[in-house]
Computed example of a mutant assay.
Amino acid sequence: VGGAQGPTAPLSWLNVSMLLAVLVMFLLIADFVRKRRPRNFPPGPQLFPLVGTIVDLRQPLHLEMQKLTARYGNIFSVQFGGLTFVVVSGYQMVREALVHQAEIFADRPHIPLLQEIFRGFGLISSNGHIWRQQRKFVLATLKNTVVSFESKVQEESRYLVEAMEEEKGQPFDPHYKINSAVSNIICSITFGNRFDYHDSNFQELLHLLAETLLLIGSFWGQLYNAFPLIMRWLPGPFRKIFRHWEKLQHFVRGVIAKHKENLDQSDVGDYIDCYLKEIEKFKGDTNSYFHEENLLCSTLDLFLTGTETTATAIRWALLYMAVYPHIQGRATDGSFIT
């Protein structure tokens, strides 16, 4: 009996190895078929099993995209893990997609990281009816407050100038001063009040927002989006995104709670007040998506998309005026004509 068992052991291991090899080959072929570009699909770099498009991770992703634009033109496709992207660049192409054919390009892609933190609520990661309903409300609310919005921008600009004058002409980094000013305008419209630039809680809020956005767009954030089923169980710097998001939610929930306590139905109020009234208005309507989770996510959306993008545009404008003093002179003496 013992002699009969000897030869079967290597045979069993051989069978297992062959089974694993066949399984791996099947998975690779299935992945290749799934990732294969359909006919008339935008061209792109060679695709590799499992990973898709391979880029140089030592450089920022947008620089790699610029290289691919030079090679494949203003429309090309890339794949990262399970995500497929069609990249559109150039003013005319982007305008055609986002303005002339806006309805076709209105849907939002399924980005695992954003789905994880927003759960399909808010403005960034929502889709279909919920997105249209929330977007329509936000636009109408901001339009109704356009006069006060302009006055708040003018008021905040004075605070920003004062903060810069405190530097007494010495070199300084304007990053957080500009971020504070832009965020304060959003706070005024959303919360109904602004914060002092030296307020520690306010600065922590800005720091959390900035680092969260940085991590979402980082290599680790993109790796999570490409392989969410694996990355969900692994440690890494991207874990900070979820910790920061909990703190941001806690802060905004506290503001919403105070607004609920002091809500005046006869007063227009700020964005949160308007949204709370809308919740009451559609209470009991099963087709309505006006609830506190959507309020929470849409409020954080306004901060995430409004603060960093606007502040970055202003910093670039300052840089250009510093590099081109004659343009700065035209802007300051009022002779600048667009």
Results as ranks from 00 to 15, higher is better:
Glu162Pro: 01
Ser180Asn: 13
Val78Cys: 12
Gly284Lys: 09
Pro38Gly: 07
Thr69Asp: 06
Asp273His: 14
Ala210Thr: 09
Ala331Asn: 05
Gly120Ile: 03
His207Trp: 02
Phe202Val: 05
Pro325Lys: 01
Thr141Arg: 05
Arg37Met: 08
Ile54Pro: 11
Val138Asn: 12
Ile130Pro: 04
Ile216His: 02
Ser266Asn: 15
His198Cys: 05
Thr145Glu: 05
Ala9Phe: 12
Thr338Met: 10
Asn127Gly: 10
Asn40Gly: 00
Trp13Lys: 05
Glu150Ser: 09
Leu263Ser: 09
Phe191Gln: 11
Thr141Ile: 02
Asp56Ile: 11
Leu160Glu: 08
Asn294Asp: 03
Gly81His: 13
Arg58Met: 03
Pro112Tyr: 06
Phe32Arg: 15
Leu209His: 05
Ser89Pro: 15
Val255Thr: 14
Met164Ile: 07
Asn40Val: 10
Pro325Tyr: 00
Lys168Pro: 02
Pro228Trp: 00
Asp267Leu: 04
Thr8Ile: 12
Pro237Ile: 03
Leu214Thr: 06
Leu19Gln: 14
Trp131Tyr: 08
Gln101Ile: 02
Val94Ser: 03
Leu114Phe: 14
Lys277Gly: 04
Asn287Val: 08
Ala226Trp: 07
Phe242Asn: 09
Val138Ser: 15
Tyr197Gly: 12
Phe80Tyr: 10
Gly128Glu: 08
Glu155Met: 10
Val99Met: 03
Arg119Pro: 05
Gly52Ile: 04
Ser157Met: 11
Arg330Asn: 04
Ser200Cys: 03
Trp316Phe: 10
Val146Trp: 00
Met231Asn: 06
Glu293Trp: 05
Ala226Leu: 09
Val182Gln: 06
Asn294Gln: 07
Gly334Ala: 01
Leu27Glu: 06
Phe105Arg: 12
Glu278Phe: 02
Glu155Ala: 13
Tyr324Ala: 02
